[in-house]
Simulated assay, not measured.
Amino acid sequence: GEEAVDAAGVLHAPFSDGYDEGVDPRVHDMRSFAARARAVGCETLAGVVARLAERGRPVTCVVYTFFVGWVPEVARASGIPSALFWIQPAAVFAVYYHYFHGHEAVLASCANDPDRDAVVQLPGLPPLKSRALPSVVALTSPEQRGYEVVGTLRDLFLALDDDEHRPKVLVNTLDALEPDALRAVPGFELVAVGPVVPDGSSPSTTDLSLWVSRKVAEVDGAELNGTEAGRGADGGQGIMVEWCDQVRVLSHPAVGCFVTHCGWNSALESIACGVPVVAVPQKFDQPTVAWLVEECAGVGVRAQADGEGVAERGELQRCVETVMGGGETAVEIRPCAAKWMERAREALAGGGTLERNLRAFLSGF
């Protein structure tokens, strides 16, 4: 791709990882994917850094995500400081750090314990039940699906350990939500720069039908925009969409709760909008996000999965009714949701923790 400058004046300079047309497991040898992406990426990103320096616009800091954990190598070779942008909770970062620093066996043992209330105690963190741990720590064999993520994370933390300075990690979280986790990793500087959420301005005055950019189906037996849908078995109605502006939907006063798989972005958006959550986590960081939502923030309930890891219809109904009803749990959740919405607004406001922490970070370059 070509370089481009957007409306905000930000230069977008693409670099190649050797798979410019995308990755297809049917065509590419996935055993060599990581090594090739690393080798090609290091070379082409170094070229971008060199070109910018030649133009008199030298790079002063490289910020990267864990998907490209090799980037610090390029930065070090050019004498440039780097910082990791961690897009998951600080608690997950801390769990992974301890996993790769002496606690691998105890974490794997707890995560694979048939007793879902089994507990592990890690330095700087509260006791964590097995169902609150990221799924990656349960993987113990290369034959297991998803095990390649363990290698990616191991390389990332090895690279961080090689940093001769105190590694800086920008975390998409609120300082008020994860104060202990942000300080649970010795020798690291974890900086809360969240919640990083899109602007959902003026949602209450916008009609819902402007939110959907593609196909929409109303579940009442009708056909809308070329997509067919039918009435549910119980006669209930709903709307099915392929895509929508999630923050604007969550900001609408008609939305009473959010049933979510607990991706961290979705959880933060829900918290920032003051919407209670029904958590249905599956894998990766999602179980830990569900723990943060339910037990730390107190803004939702977690659906219990069956033996196959599926939250069935009746369980989802129970959770929605628990959150939306007039019972004790709902009465406790609503003020918590309002409190955390206010905390998020304070963090996002001018002079809030997000701005202050970013300014402090940038002042070091």
Results as ranks from 00 to 15, higher is better:
Val27Ser: 12
Val10Thr: 12
Arg356Thr: 08
Gly232Thr: 12
Cys273Tyr: 07
Gly41Val: 12
Val59Thr: 00
Phe15Lys: 11
Arg36Lys: 15
Leu128Trp: 07
Leu133His: 02
Ala118Thr: 08
Pro123Cys: 11
Val48Leu: 06
Leu122Arg: 02
Ser363Val: 07
Val255Lys: 02
Leu348Glu: 00
Val10Trp: 02
Gly194Ile: 06
Phe361Pro: 08
Ile333Leu: 06
Lys283Glu: 08
Ala35Ser: 14
Phe258Glu: 07
Pro335Asp: 03
Pro142Ala: 05
Ala181His: 09
Arg57Met: 01
Val74Ala: 03
Asn265Ala: 09
Gly18Ser: 00
Glu321Phe: 07
Cys262Ile: 09
Glu312Phe: 04
Ala330Tyr: 01
Gly22Phe: 03
Asp245Ser: 11
Val119Cys: 14
Cys262His: 05
Gln121Glu: 14
Gln237Asp: 00
Pro195Met: 10
Val169Asp: 02
Pro186Glu: 12
Pro198Gly: 06
Asp6Tyr: 06
Gly79Lys: 00
Gly314Lys: 09
Val278Arg: 00
Val331Asp: 06
Ala37Cys: 15
Met240Glu: 04
Ser363Pro: 02
Gly351Asn: 06
Cys244Thr: 12
Asn265Leu: 08
Val293Gln: 01
Gly364Pro: 03
Lys129Ile: 00
Tyr99Ser: 00
Ser32Gln: 13
Val197Cys: 10
Arg154Val: 06
Ser213Glu: 07
Ser109Val: 06
Glu73Gly: 04
Ala267Glu: 02
Glu178Asp: 11
Glu308Arg: 14
Ala37Tyr: 08
Gly146Met: 10
Ile87Lys: 02
Val241Arg: 01
Asp113Gln: 05
Glu242Ala: 07
Val49Gln: 00
Val255Gly: 01
Val63Tyr: 02
Phe361Met: 07
Thr329Met: 13
Gly327Thr: 04
Asp161Gly: 15
Val10Pro: 03
Ala53Leu: 06
Arg166Met: 15
Val92Ser: 02
Gly221Met: 11
Asp199Ala: 15
Glu321Asp: 11
Val293Met: 08
His252Val: 04
Gln286Gly: 04
Glu148Arg: 12
Thr227Ser: 12
Ala347Gly: 08
Leu156Ala: 15
Glu73Pro: 01
Arg131Lys: 13
Arg26Ser: 14
Thr206Gly: 04
Val301His: 04
Ala279Gly: 13
Ala360Pro: 11
Arg26Thr: 13
Ala34Gln: 13
Cys257Ile: 04
Val197Lys: 10
Arg356Trp: 00
Ala279Ile: 13
Thr152Ile: 15
Ser141His: 12
Gln144Ala: 14
Gly351Thr: 06
Val150His: 09
Leu128Glu: 01
Asp234Arg: 02
Val40Ala: 12
Ala181Arg: 08
Gly274Asp: 03
Thr205Gly: 05
Lys129Ala: 09
Val280Cys: 10
Ile80Cys: 01
His28Tyr: 08
Gly235Trp: 10
Val27Ile: 15
Trp86Asp: 00
Arg131Cys: 11
Phe284Met: 10
Ala349Met: 01
Arg51Ala: 11
Lys283Arg: 10
Arg145Ala: 15
Gln286Val: 08
Thr227Lys: 14
Ser270His: 07
Phe365His: 14
Glu178Asn: 10
Glu2Val: 11
Ala303Ile: 05
Val289Trp: 06
Asp115Trp: 07
Pro142Glu: 05
Gly309Gln: 10
Trp291Ala: 09
Trp291Ile: 03
